[in-house]
Amino acid sequence: MATARTYDPELLRAEKRRRENMRRLKGLGLHALLIALLFVMLYPVIWMVFSALRPEAEIFGDMGFIPTNWTLENFVRGWQLYGNLTFTQFYINSFIICALAIVGNLLACSMAAYAFARLEFRGKWFLFAIMLGTMMLPIHVQLIPQYIFFLNIGWVNTILPLVVPKFLAHDAFFIFLMVQFMRSLPSELEQAAVVDGASYWQRYWRIILPLSMPALATTAVFTFINTYNDFFSQLIYLTDTDRMTVPVALRLFLDPSGGSSSFGGLFAMVLVSIGPVLGFFLASQRLLTKGIATQGIK
């Protein structure tokens, strides 16, 4: 015989409260752990921020986390690297190269990707394989031939070797990324445009490109970060100190060969140099979200 189970509402409420408290406690513990881990991960950055704000002589001498004496002197001295050279010039140089590299990559890589993703032509898969193969070539193999080529056409000590290849679909990774994205777009949208008499260019420019916003935003973000942080190419191709960029200039604060180093200036300028990357990433995140929301594909 089945017996009816009775529930004491008070007991039920107490159990619910206990579970709620447990859940809150777990949440609290988890958050405390995550905050502790975050602090461990951010510790070097926080230490650098405080070091940039304390006098140079106290950076390695004052063991305290928070500076005893606060100063902006490191920013002033760091900005004025030496002689007439200031970070104003280095930022201008870096931003010009970054802007042209982004424009170049967005245009050229998306056009190449459109051809590989949506058009049919003889040797397409062979060319696609070669394009993928270039991603596997180590930079050391390309370095000297590229340098000699650019030297022979008189481009060394100009920004041309750093930006012109971007307009020639030089970054295979971004082509591959956009090819994969464009392949996922419904072909009916493009077929409708074909019925309306759209040319290849119109289909690419009016249909495919607006729908590829997320891939374009990703390309723009990574092109900016890669170009902004690119030390070696900029060191090799921009030799005149007036044409130095931010990553190259940042290396000039330390001297492992025996001379004096300026850690205060270095920390201050590293801190400033993080700003554009962070800002661009945050701005692009919004663009990325917007692109996904407006592309018409869910």
């Binding site: 690297l81 030496y82 002689g83 001297d255 060969s257």
Partner: peptide, 8 residues
Amino acid sequence: WGGQVRND
């Protein structure tokens, strides 16, 4: 080659 002081 050099750091900030030598460059100056």
